[in-house]
């Protein structure tokens, strides 16, 4: 129901539109009323359940698990610090560029890359921090770490694959094309199973290979293939004349790629790359079925607690809310980036 720009919400054009759209004929009226009753009833019983019947103790009492997993209590500040840093970084990125000092603005991309090693340092320990094994990582903290690791691995990989796919060396081109098409033809869960089940079998006896790293590698290789196609699309959208201009200025092929082609290709591919990032977050939940106690996995373990038997609905609604919040944050970051870059495009 589009509002007429000149009139208030309840003025005549709106009423007319409502009448025309919803009550045009007796049949329309019946359908409208039935649907309204159904939707209203559904919403009513949902709200009734949320506020009167649901027992949210399963969320409230386990809040630390949802956020930090099994991270040792006395070290939990480290997990908080990382999440806090991440939050500050998101905030800084979302803030209008004018409100930030220039040096900070310039450093933002680098900070987004550094946040992963910082996170690893804070969570895993070392350099004076007490070591915490990765099996104590979990919940939101692990989901975010997995997503960040996946994206930071998949993006450069995707760029390299996209460039290799249009290489003039036939072997390299065939290999990358084969890799991309093969990966895109496989379900993610199969790739993850391969990473979690097969890799340990291939390693020599006695060798173990961190599960979190295994998960990030499988996810990264998978998402990288998709990102490669997005980047390739961006590369293809660049007019040939841009390359001629770059060549006539004496830019080497490498510089042409880095300074002229990639910045433009990534800009074009940004919306789809952002989609891949959000999809990566959601994909991390599949790792619950491979024994990682990220957000979904930790919920499985909490639901196993006899004190919270049968509280599935509460937990899954809470999870939906958490995932939704993080996804919204990610998409607004992407939109922000898009807007910043758009300045240079049109107008």
């Amino acid at each position: 129901m589009a509002e007429s720009p000149r009139s208030g919400p309840w003025s005549r054009p709106l009423l007319r539109q409502i009448r025309r759209g919803l009550f045009a004929s007796p049949l329309d009226t019946v359908i409208t009323v039935v649907l309204a009753v159904l939707c209203g009833g559904g919403l009513w019983s949902f709200l009734h359940w949320v506020f009167l019947q649901a027992d949210w103790a399963v969320v409230v009492e386990n809040i630390r698990l949802y956020i930090h997993g099994r991270f040792p209590v006395e070290q939990v500040w480290r997990s908080w610090s990382w999440l806090g840093l991440l939050g500050v970084l998101c905030l800084a990125t979302l803030m209008p560029a004018r409100m930030l000092p220039r040096p900070v603005l310039r450093l933002l991309p680098l900070l987004w890359i550094l946040i992963l090693p910082i996170g690893l340092l804070l969570l895993a320990g070392g350099l004076g921090f007490e070591p915490v094994k990765s099996r104590f990582w979990g919940g939101l903290q692990l989901s975010l770490l997995l997503t960040l690791g996946t994206v930071l691995m998949a993006l450069p990989l995707g760029i390299l694959l996209a460039l290799a796919r249009r290489s003039s060396l036939p072997l390299l081109r065939w290999l990358t094309t084969g890799y991309i098409e093969l990966t895109r033809g496989m379900p993610l869960i199969a790739v993850l199973f391969f990473g979690q089940l097969m890799i340990p079998l291939f390693l020599p006896e006695g060798w173990t290979f961190n599960r979190v790293l295994r998960a990030v590698l499988s996810l990264g290789f998978f998402v990288g293939a998709y990102m490669a196609e997005d980047v390739r699309g961006g590369l293809q959208s660049i007019p040939k004349t841009q390359l001629e201009a770059a060549r006539s200025l004496g830019l080497s092929p490498l510089l042409t790629v880095a300074l002229v082609e990639l910045p433009q290709a990534l800009r074009t591919a940004l919306p789809s790359l952002a989609n891949q990032c959000v999809a990566s977050l959601q994909s991390t939940s599949l790792l619950a079925y491979l024994g990682l106690i990220e957000l979904l996995g930790i919920s499985r373990s909490i639901l196993g607690n006899p004190s919270f038997l049968g509280r599935h609905l509460e937990v899954y609604i809470w999870l939906a809310l958490l995932y939704w919040a993080v996804c919204i944050l990610m998409t607004s970051l992407a939109r922000r980036l898009e807007r910043t870059l758009k300045v240079s495009d049109h107008h």
Partner: peptide
Amino acid sequence: RHHVGMVFQSFNLFPHLSILENVTLAPVWV
């Protein structure tokens, strides 16, 4: 190419760079 400049019919400026960056790109990187 280091000694020959070229101007095209359709300008072919780099849309992702500011005017100043368009001009400084080659001197800085090449």
